[in-house]
Computed example of a mutant assay.
Amino acid sequence: MDDAVGDHQSGRDVTGRVVVGGEALVDLVPVPGEHSVDQGGDPALRPLAPRLGGGPFNTAVGLGRLGAPTTMLTRLSTDAFGDALVARLEANDVDTGLLQRGPEPTTLAVVTLDAAGAARYTFHVEGTADRLVADPGELPADTAAVAVGTLSLVLEPGASRYAALAQREAARGRLVSLDPNLRPGLVDDPAALVARLDAVAAVAGLVKFSDEDAERWGRSPQDVLDLGAGAVVLTRGGEGLTAHTRGGGVVEVPADRVGPLVDTIGAGDSVHAALLAWLAHRDALDRDAVARLDAQAWSQALASAARAAAWTVSRAGAEPPWRAELDAAT
Rank of each mutant, 00 (worst) to 15 (best):
Leu108Tyr: 09
Leu98Gly: 04
Leu261Thr: 09
Ala141Val: 08
Pro43Ala: 08
Val94Ala: 05
Leu275Thr: 02
Asp3Leu: 01
Tyr121Arg: 04
Ala273Leu: 01
Gly62Cys: 06
Ala163Thr: 13
Arg282Gln: 02
Trp311Asp: 15
Asp288Gln: 08
Val29Arg: 06
Asp286Glu: 12
Leu275Val: 04
Asp38His: 10
Arg292Ile: 01
Arg172Leu: 02
Asp93Met: 08
Pro221Glu: 15
Ala289Thr: 05
Pro321Trp: 12
Ser10Asn: 12
Gly266Asp: 04
Gly259Lys: 03
Ala295His: 12
Gly205Met: 09
Gly173Asp: 07
Asp2Tyr: 07
Gly97Gln: 11
Ala310Val: 05
Val233Met: 11
Glu104Gln: 14
Gly53Leu: 02
Ala145Asn: 06
Gly317Tyr: 00
Leu45Lys: 01
Gly6Cys: 03
Leu285Phe: 02
Ala84Trp: 10
Arg88Pro: 10
Gln100Glu: 13
Pro254Lys: 04
Asp269Pro: 00
Thr106Lys: 03
Leu279Pro: 05
Trp298Cys: 05
Pro140Leu: 07
Gln9Ser: 13
Thr128Trp: 04
Trp311Leu: 12
Val187Thr: 10
Leu326Lys: 10
Ala164Asp: 14
His35Glu: 14
Leu234Gln: 15
Pro50Tyr: 08
Ala80Gly: 13
Trp278Phe: 13
Ala291Lys: 03
Leu155Asp: 09
Glu215Ser: 14
Leu76Met: 01
Ala84Val: 11
Leu182Lys: 03
Val203Lys: 11
Glu325Ser: 07
Asp198Gly: 12
Leu206Arg: 06
Asp83Arg: 14
Ser177Leu: 02
Arg75Met: 00
Arg307Trp: 05
Ala280Trp: 02
Val133Ser: 09
Leu132Arg: 10
Ala171Asn: 11
Arg101Gln: 08
Arg307Asn: 10
Arg172Ala: 09
Leu193Glu: 14
Ala141Gln: 11
Arg101Ala: 00
Arg168Asp: 14
Ala119Glu: 14
His35Cys: 00
Asp189Ala: 08
Gly205His: 09
Ala164Cys: 02
Thr70Asn: 04
Ala68Tyr: 09
Leu108Trp: 09
Asp114Met: 10
Arg131Tyr: 05
Gly205Phe: 10
Glu138Pro: 08
Leu193Gly: 07
Asp83Cys: 08
Leu193Ile: 06
Thr107Gln: 08
Arg174Ala: 01
Asp83Val: 12
Pro105Arg: 00
Gly41Ile: 04
Val233Arg: 11
Ala91Val: 07
Asp188Ile: 01
Gly185His: 12
Pro254Tyr: 03
